[in-house]
């Protein structure tokens, strides 16, 4: 029982493993991709609860060979995705990665992901801090 509790504690710690505790990640999810789709997108809200600005610089994931930070914009009716080198999150604010705006774009893995699967992302910040995030695969409009 004791070891179970300990492992539970360790597990929950690993889910929230924040070398950068000023960043809270909420509602992280990956859009389930239709069969044949080569690209996938992930979304989450990044909350900077600290008193200094932070900048998201790089994202990696054991599930995807590449993770890119993109932003969809619609200008004069034309949808366009642009690559973002980094994403600033000013102190005390939150930035939403959401459909039609900022998102992570990943090439779909060989093994198709299904609704309910969990995938991990490592967010690396300019100050050297990292945040590990678990995202759930969801079928969502």
């Amino acid at each position: 029982m004791k070891s179970f509790l300990l492992s539970l504690l360790l597990c929950s710690w690993s889910l929230l493993a924040c070398a950068d505790p000023a960043i809270q990640v909420e509602n992280a999810w990956v859009r389930e991709a239709p069969p044949g789709a080569q690209m996938m997108a992930a979304y989450m809200t990044l909350k900077n609860t600290g008193s200094s600005d932070v900048t998201l610089e790089n994202i990696t994931s054991p599930t995807f060979r590449m993770v890119m930070l993109h932003k969809s914009v619609i200008v004069d009716g034309v949808a366009r995705m642009s690559h973002q080198d980094s994403l600033p999150i000013p102190a005390g604010t939150s930035v939403a990665l959401e459909p039609g705006s900022y998102h992570l774009m990943m090439p779909a893995p060989e093994q198709r992901l299904h609704s309910g699967d969990l995938v991990e992302f490592n967010l690396q910040f300019a100050d050297g801090g990292t945040v590990r995030v678990q995202a759930i695969v969801r079928k969502k409009p």
């Binding site: 859009r31 991709a33 239709p34 789709a37 996938m40 997108a41 969809s72 619609i74 995705m81 409009p141």
Partner: peptide
């Protein structure tokens, strides 16, 4: 179909 955000939405 390579569009992961706007098109599936």
């Amino acid at each position: 179909t390579h569009c992961p955000d706007v098109c599936p939405t």
